[in-house]
Design a protein around this nucleic acid. Structure first.
Lengths: 178, 178
DNA sequence: TGATTCATGTAACTCGTTACATGATTAG
DNA sequence: CTAATCATGTAACGAGTTACATGAATCA
């Protein structure tokens, strides 16, 4: 079952956002466990509006030269739909890592290529470590009035530790390949 | 780009397999970074055969009451195609974890449901730890004449450590939720 | 002034799952 | 004997990406 709508509703629960904002949030903060494309987000926003689960919120500063962003707000019906989904059982994860697939099939003949792939894999992991640490600090520094960030910080913590694991494992593996 | 063909070719590189065997191998050994369905595997086997990248290998023991399994063997052309893919750049990973998505959106109001989700998540991680350890022992115990298992063991090691991380993180998070 | 990013959207296409069909074999 | 598993396949559907189009705003 398609879950795009719940990602949207979940994000709108915290603040009003445009389709563009939603995509950005997912890219930056959820990249290690989720992704969505514009081709999913924009049509879904239309559907959700039609069904009354979200509504357009006033776009700020349309008087000036500023372009008006189409921001959306969650409705009570939307909140209910989100709640029902939160309670429901989870489908099994889908994961596909082309790099690990290659690693699995690699032989001693391939080791030179694999070293290159590994180096890149490590760099990506290191970048994620930095990104997650930044985002962690950003969240921790903000005064958390509603205690809303506790769970986000937990998920972020897992992402950080996973990225560190990937980085460590890559280093070790590169060393073993000589 | 669709990668089903390379999974098939990669597995056939080590030994002759049927479509059913291929599915089973992926399920058991690659579950933490890959998945394929029969609806992808069987049609792809036909295509690969047509293109000459694989060929049917003699099915053993068709004289007896045994049913004949349709096993396939990789051809030199198939090996070349596999090699070219191994050298090429990797596309970015695709990941979707409904559980982590819910965790990200969770608030203090949801904590009872989240505890349930977390418990299940932890159980699944623990099961994977056991599964990977078993498979690790199986591979290590076999005399490794061709040194083919080194890379597989490395990937398995990452899977194991990831499963352990998930399990630890779940335990910690459950404790924090009280 | 020209390139890049912001911003919203759609159409075509490919990818991937699910449900179904069929029949043999094995375990209890 | 019957339920489960083995085994191969297909058709329909749904999910998801990519390429394209458009235009405003910003940066250099």
């Amino acid at each position: 079952m398609k879950k795009t709508r719940f990602v949207i509703l979940g994000l709108l629960q915290e603040e009003d956002l445009s389709g563009y904002d939603i995509k950005k949030s997912i890219n930056i903060r959820m990249s290690f466990f989720w992704q969505e494309s514009y081709g999913q987000i924009y049509p879904e926003l239309s559907k959700l509006k039609e069904e009354g689960l979200i509504e357009q919120s006033l776009s700020e500063a349309s008087g000036k030269a500023k372009i008006e962003k189409i921001k959306y707000r969650i409705t009570p019906e939307g909140s209910q739909a989100l709640k029902r989904w939160m309670e429901a059982e989870n489908e099994k994860d889908t994961i596909r890592s082309e790099f690990l697939l290659k690693m699995y099939f690699a032989t001693d003949q391939n080791s030179e290529e694999m070293k290159q792939h590994l180096t890149l894999f490590k760099e990506q992991a290191d970048q994620k470590v930095i990104l997650f640490q930044m985002f962690q600090q950003e969240l921790t520094s903000k005064i958390d009035m509603h205690n809303n960030h506790r769970q986000i910080l937990k998920v972020l913590d897992l992402g950080l530790r996973q990225a560190q694991l990937y980085s460590d494992w890559s280093r070790e593996t590169l060393e073993e390949l000589g």
